[in-house]
Design a protein around this nucleic acid. Structure first.
Length: 829
DNA sequence: GTCACATCGTCGT
DNA sequence: CGATGTGAC
């Protein structure tokens, strides 16, 4: 059960922590947590006894994560149950058995969803699972150890003898077993919360000089722990209050004073409780654990040294025969039946041929090596030098601002490879060159000290570090999609595009999409002809078109929309799009270039060549491919249905695709990206029909679109003046400012989203329009609502909240680091 | 403000 | 097992 409410209580003793801060350290892991979480993914299969390895893979993902930060993991598994916990365990088993039975019953009745919820609750982590994981870890040279009893105590032992400097768990008990540094809530991004024993007094509100660890442990036991229920009415808060008040070193006498100190007269502290308390305390201190270095069982701390009477240790486990204890610790035995399941041996394993290859790969010193102690000692003496071979020979000093300690500057040693790797840049050929501690004047350092020949990769490292030291402010935020500026100046065309993950600081008001989008990354401002005349318009459409035109050259991906280009797997290369305006003028390829992606799909469809269609990258990269039941009701068919073959209505028809009005009651599952495709097609068609269309501007077309949407020409609508005016203002305002074409587009998107159409009540400037769109109220009563196939009623409700964000789903927004805003607060107007 | 108790989610797609 | 919510004191 752990200690109820301990983690929130420890808030002040904890700090945010990332795995990158643990480089080169050793970490002991409470593997039960991972296995248990992983087993949830395949609960049904496990419950039915079907073979699966999803839970194993889940754990290995974490192992890999640790290894990628050069952290040595030691996986610790639970051993036998303590007699003191037998009752609790029996109860759990019973609960699981019950859940299993009910699950099976429901399954027979065909109520699958309900059955699932029960089958999930009955997942039990068996030693077979543990062994499966242990065997995978052995292949990877990762240490595992099975605790004689509770993994908690084993973890604490490894931490206390400094075999592992950190412990990873979800169980708050670890704190009172006496761990020094515990990482809770570690996720796959490497973030977690670090609780340090040295800060516990902060959480308790105790002066540091008066604090002793016993106080904390007593407090936890009093508040109720696995080995002892609390006195009625005593929780963490009361226990803390009491522990801070009493100064009596004799705990028996102190316990008797609880009712007096806490003003709880009705409370009676029996002799039995005092005994049980001392036993529980001894259990935490003297639990039997395994010492991998001496290969024998021992106690977490010595009862003699702490003069704990033998009688109180009765719950702390018993020693096993030495040989059996060893076999159990390395995982060969089932801890309960002591049956032999495997016969691995650390001393023999290294001799095998395949193992020697692994040993090479093995980057960390195994705790099972007989020379572990001496080697570790050697590592300590020679410092970090011994701890790494080739790639870590060079160190870069940089100062790191630690946020939570009032900006104390700490010096930390990191290698180039470390820095690069930490931000997702693989260093294939680790640089062995020495880097200077200079981040600004790179050129002078390269020239003046001739022995330092900085390479592009090194410069990147410097760049990353420079960016890291730059603090984020409300106005300037870290942009996960920013591209290294070094690339443009130094890398040139042929250097690979490098995303400097969370390092780069850019203006917060600039759309993060700007950097991912193939369209927005186009530097349209440079697209002037030689006379200085602007070739491409500043609008998104203009840029889109220009990009599209350029992309026609064979093998180059064609830009389709914000998110897609014609080759699904090909990354748009900015340098091809930036600064090559010459192709814009060359009209030769232009005619061909105007074949829109939608047209290709259409053509393929007409040929009924489904195979080709599916194989087409366009199709695969389009949202259409992701529609449920895409075989039977594609947008293509709907389009044909709603606008039956009329060429004259072609443009409007295409515009209309993806929009379902209430009257038509047709469905659409199109995302904004797909709509953008349609926008694009609209541009195509416009171009070819330009004579007939009298060269209509995008704005006209969008007004047409708007009219179409409300199903009546705006002229006949009572809202016409307001709505159209506002729309016009919005569109006009944004048309001068090229970069704010986004705002225009967002609005156009918003008009087309599934959610009720919104218009701005009083047209603000386009700049704020983009921002406030989320909050804007529904003024024009929306008549075209959308029903999406496959969405249940409540989900549809939920998706309404996304309206106004240009069709972006919340998950996508949060992917880019946006918080969900309290949207639609003006709804009730 | 505290505590006891009940209920839900843990993954992955 | 933790997080969260609710109701009682």
């Amino acid at each position: 059960m752990g200690i109820t409410g301990l983690l929130p209580f420890l808030e002040k003793a904890s700090s945010a922590c990332h795995l990158r801060d643990l480089r080169g350290k050793c970490v002991a892991i409470d593997t039960y947590c991972w296995l248990h979480r992983g087993a949830f993914a395949c609960a049904e299969r496990l419950a039915r006894g079907e073979p699966t390895d999803i839970h194993i893979l889940y754990c290995l993902k974490y192992v890999q994560l640790l290894l990628s930060y050069n952290i040595k993991p030691i996986l610790v598994f639970d051993g036998q149950h303590l007699p003191a916990k037998a009752a609790t365990e029996a109860k759990r088993r019973e609960n699981r058995a019950n859940a299993r039975k009910r699950g099976a019953e429901l399954l027979r009745l065909g109520r699958i969803d309900e059955a699932r919820s029960f089958l999930r609750r009955c997942v039990d982590i068996t030693h077979e699972m543990a062994l499966q994981l242990i065997q995978e870890c052995r292949k990877r040279g990762v240490d595992c150890i099975v605790a004689p009893y509770e993994a908690d105590a084993q973890l604490a032992y490894l931490n206390r003898v400094d075999i592992a400097q950190y412990v990873i768990t979800e169980d708050s008990d670890l704190v009172l077993f006496g761990c020094n540094r515990i990482l809770f809530k570690l996720d796959l991004t490497g973030n977690g919360r670090l609780v340090e024993a040295s800060k516990l007094h902060l959480a308790m509100g105790c002066r540091e000089d008066r604090y002793r660890f016993e106080k904390f442990r007593y407090m936890c036991i009093l508040s109720g722990c696995d080995y002892l229920d609390s006195l009625p009415g005593i929780g963490l808060a009361k226990a803390c209050k009491f522990v801070l008040k009493t100064e009596d070193p004799d705990i028996r006498r102190a316990l008797a004073k609880i009712p007096a100190y806490l003003n709880m007269r009705q409370l009676v502290v029996t002799e039995d409780y005092k005994d049980a308390f001392l036993k529980a305390d001894a259990t935490f201190r003297h639990m039997v654990v395994y010492d991998p270095v001496c290969r024998r069982q021992t106690r977490l701390s010595d009862p003699d040294e702490e003069s704990t009477p033998e009688q109180y240790c009765c719950n702390a486990g018993q020693f096993l025969d030495e040989a059996i204890a060893f076999e159990m610790a390395i995982g060969n035995l089932d801890p309960f039946s002591l049956r032999k399941l495997d016969d691995w041996h650390p001393d023999v394993a290294g001799d095998g041929e395949e193992m020697s290859a692994n040993a090479k790969k093995m980057r960390h010193l195994s705790i099972w090596r007989t020379d572990y102690a001496t080697l570790k000692e050697a590592t300590k003496e020679t410092g970090t030098k011994a701890h790494k071979s080739s790639s870590l020979t060079t160190f870069v000093k940089r100062t790191v601002l630690k946020q939570e300690e009032n900006q104390v500057e700490l010096e930390c040693k990191e290698t180039i490879a470390d820095v690069l790797q930490g931000y997702g840049i693989q260093s294939d050929e680790p640089s062995s060159k020495r880097l200077c501690h200079i981040t600004s004047d790179v050129s002078s350092s390269t020239t003046s000290t001739s022995k330092v020949a900085l390479e592009y990769r090194d410069l990147e490292a410097l760049d990353v570090m420079g960016q890291l030291d730059q603090p984020a402010t409300p106005k300037r935020k870290r942009n996960p999609f920013a591209i290294s500026p070094a690339k443009r100046t130094l890398g040139g065309k042929d250097s690979p595009e490098v995303l400097l993950s969370p390092t780069k600081i850019t203006a917060a008001n600039r759309s993060l999409l700007h950097n991912v989008s193939p369209v927005k990354r186009i530097d349209y401002s440079q697209q002037r002809s030689q006379g200085g005349e602007v070739v491409a318009s500043g609008s998104r459409f203009g840029r889109l078109k220009t990009a599209h035109d350029k992309g026609v050259v064979a093998d180059e991906p064609k830009v389709i929309s914000r998110f897609f280009c014609t080759k699904a797997s090909v990354k748009i290369q900015t340098n091809r799009l930036i600064g090559s305006p010459k192709k814009v003028g060359s009209s030769g390829a232009d005619a061909d270039s105007l074949v829109s992606p939608t047209a290709i799909v259409k053509e393929l469809k007409s040929k009924r060549d489904a195979q080709t269609l599916r194989a087409t990258a366009i199709y695969l990269s389009s949202p259409e491919a992701r529609l449920p039941n895409r075989g039977d009701r594609t947008p293509e068919k709907r389009r044909a249905h709603t606008t039956p073959g009329s060429d004259k209505e072609g443009i409007i028809g295409q515009l209309d695709s993806g929009i379902a009005t209430a009257e038509e009651d047709s469905n659409t599952g199109l995302s904004s990206s797909q709509k953008e495709n349609d926008d694009f097609e609209m541009l195509d068609t416009m171009e070819t029909n330009s004579a007939k269309q009298n060269r209509s501007s995008p704005r006209t077309v969008r007004l047409a679109l708007f009219e179409r949407q409300v199903k009546k020409p705006l002229a006949q609508s009572p809202n016409r003046s307001d709505a159209a005016e506002e729309l016009a203002i919005v569109l006009d305002d944004s048309s001068n400012d090229g970069d704010d074409g986004v705002g225009k587009q967002e609005i156009a998107d918003a008009l087309k989203t599934e959610a009720p159409i919104t218009t701005l009540p009083s047209a603000p400037s386009a700049r704020t329009a983009t921002k406030t769109l989320v909050k804007s109220p529904v003024k024009t009563k929306a008549r075209s609502t959308c029903k999406r196939p496959g969405l249940s009623a409540n989900k549809r409700q939920a998706s309404k909240g996304d309206s106004g964000t240009g069709g972006m789903t919340q998950s996508r927004l949060s992917m880019f680091g946006f918080q969900k805003k309290p949207s639609m607060q003006l709804n009730n107007r």
